[in-house]
Computed example of a mutant assay.
Amino acid sequence: SVSPQATWCELPSRVLLVLTSQRGVQMYDADGSTMVFWHALDVPELPAAHSVFARGIAAAGGRFICVGTSFGAVLVFDIPPKGTNVTLSEVLEQHRDPITDIAAEQGQAPDGAGDMVTADDSGTLCLWSSGEEFTLLGKIPGSGCTCSSVALWNGIVAAGYGNGQIRLWEAASGRIRAQVSAHARWIYALDLAPLTGKLLSGAEDSFVHVWKLSRNPDTDDIEVQHCHAECVTDTQVCGARFCDPAGDTFAVTGYDLSEILCYGPA
């Protein structure tokens, strides 16, 4: 079964707690006390073996929350500044495989780079520009290996894969700029610290790594540097997040773990 997801979506006017599951999409006030919106998944005609679920959540374009589905569609919800009048404003249909993750730009997007990336089970990435209508700017074909997690920072797409690799792409051109054999097993989580460009990766191999992304001012090359490694003994890491915008502290959890482990400077 597919694990439910929970994400705080920060829009300029409000913060919503968004939950996805096999039943659909739920949106709550930030403290979880009041349900603002509920969207049941419309099931296309699929063979019985296919499960239906929502997965991948991101706030984009100042007033939208985007949610991925198992049938490859990305649902775009228009969020009012207050109240419950949430509407499904658009459905983006460029993926043919289940959506795995969605990320919005966390830094400053260069010209032509777009401000959102979507990923699917085949490893295909789609780059979007948000607005009244979302525009597809480019598509990076998958190589058959699942892209399980994506992040977007200053026009750099960081993608984590089922084979343990992290690949860095140029959002504007779709060109691959770096590839790192980061983990021995499936990467389950990537997160980005917007102030510093630190990248956090957590995987089934029980390791959590911190990397630093940067652009060389002379060549404009994307550079990646390893900063820190942490082994969470006997734990398949399935969740990892920075706890501050500079990426000095991070939290980790794993399968069959009933606690969240927090790491920071000594």
Rank of each mutant, 00 (worst) to 15 (best):
S21Y: 01
C145Q: 15
A159T: 08
V43M: 04
E204T: 10
A151C: 07
L41C: 09
H228P: 02
P245R: 05
G32Y: 03
I79S: 07
R175W: 09
T253Q: 01
Q225V: 05
G112I: 02
I166V: 15
L190N: 08
T249L: 01
T100A: 04
L125Y: 08
V208M: 05
R23K: 13
G114S: 03
Q22S: 11
G32N: 01
G56S: 12
S214W: 13
A40W: 12
L137I: 08
S214F: 12
S214R: 14
Q225P: 06
I166N: 15
S206V: 12
A59S: 06
F134C: 11
E45L: 12
I102A: 13
Q179Y: 04
G56T: 06
I166R: 12
N85A: 14
V52L: 12
L152I: 08
M35F: 10
A151P: 00
G123F: 08
T124M: 05
H50R: 06
A58H: 05
C231K: 11
V2F: 13
G32R: 07
E223L: 15
G202N: 10
A119T: 07
T100I: 02
A158S: 10
C9F: 06
G107M: 09
L213K: 12
S258E: 07
G164E: 10
C126L: 08
A60M: 00
L152N: 12
Q26Y: 04
S143A: 15
P194V: 02
A159Y: 12
A240E: 03
S130L: 00
F53G: 05
A40Q: 14
E90M: 15
V224W: 02
L127D: 03
R23V: 10
T233L: 14
Y263I: 11
Q165Y: 13
G72C: 05
R185L: 13
K82I: 01
A251Y: 04
A240G: 08
G72Q: 01
Y255Q: 04
T7Y: 00
G144I: 00
A151K: 07
L192T: 14
A30F: 05
F71G: 11
S70A: 00
Q106K: 04
E133S: 14
K198I: 09
A203C: 07
G68D: 00
R241D: 05
L213P: 15
W186F: 12
F64A: 02
H95C: 10
P12R: 00
A171H: 03
P44Q: 04
H209I: 14
V157A: 09
I140M: 11
G202W: 04
A58Y: 04
P12W: 00
T34W: 02
P47N: 04
